[in-house]
Amino acid sequence: EQIEAIAKFDYMGRSPRELSFKKGASLLLYHRASEDWWEGRHNGVDGLIPHQYIVVQD
C-alpha cells in the first residue's frame, strides 16, 4: 500500500539512492526502510526519503 506524503523542507540527496525534492512536493512512500528513512518515489524516480523532511498524509 502506497502512502502519500508532502515535503516539509527542501532536501538535496547526499547519495545516488537519496531523492532530492522541494518543500511542498508530493511524495509516494512504499515502506519504512528504517527509523529515519522511507523507500519511496518522486517524479517517477525511486529512492530513499528522509522521515524528518516529510509529513505523512492520513
Rank of each mutant, 00 (worst) to 15 (best):
I3V: 05
V55T: 13
V56Q: 11
S26L: 15
S20L: 02
G47L: 00
W38Q: 01
E35S: 10
K23W: 03
D36C: 10
D58V: 06
R41G: 11
E18G: 04
V56D: 15
S15R: 08
Y11W: 08
E1G: 04
Q2D: 15
Y53V: 13
K8S: 10
K22M: 11
E39Q: 13
R32L: 09
S15Y: 13
L19R: 02
E18K: 03
G40C: 01
G44D: 11
K22C: 05
K22L: 11
A25I: 04
D36E: 11
A5E: 02
K23M: 06
R41Y: 13
I49T: 02
F9M: 15
Y11V: 05
G44E: 09
P50W: 03
D10E: 11
R32K: 15
L19N: 06
G47A: 02
A5Y: 03
H51D: 10
S34Y: 03
A25P: 00
A33Q: 15
S20R: 05
Y11G: 01
H31Q: 14
A5G: 12
D10A: 12
S20W: 04
E18M: 03
P16C: 07
Q2T: 04
S15F: 10
Y11E: 00
E4Q: 08
E1S: 08
D36T: 08
E1V: 09
G44P: 01
I6Q: 13
L27P: 00
G40S: 01
R17E: 06
Q52H: 13
W37E: 03
S34H: 05
W38N: 00
K8P: 02
V45G: 09
Y11H: 07
E4D: 10
E4L: 11
I6D: 04
I6M: 11
R32F: 00
R14C: 15
Q57I: 15
S34A: 10
G44W: 04
F21M: 05
E4K: 09
E39N: 11
G24D: 15
V45D: 08
V55P: 02
L29A: 01
W38A: 01
D36K: 06
H42I: 05
F21V: 03
S20I: 02
E4M: 12
I54G: 01
V55K: 07
F9C: 03
A25K: 09
R41P: 00
E39F: 06
V56T: 10
L48G: 03
E35T: 13
Y53F: 15
Y53C: 12
I49H: 01
I3P: 04
E18T: 05
E1T: 07
L19S: 02
A5C: 08
Y30D: 05
H42Q: 09
D10C: 09
L27C: 08
Y11S: 02
D36G: 11
G13E: 08
G47W: 00
G44R: 09
E1W: 02
I49S: 00
L28Q: 14
R14A: 07
H51L: 08
V55W: 12
L27Q: 00
G40N: 01
L48W: 06
E35A: 14
H31G: 11
L48N: 03
E4V: 07
Q57H: 15
Y53G: 13
E18S: 09
A25N: 15
H42Y: 11
G13M: 06
W38I: 01
M12I: 12
G24W: 03
V45N: 07
Q2G: 14
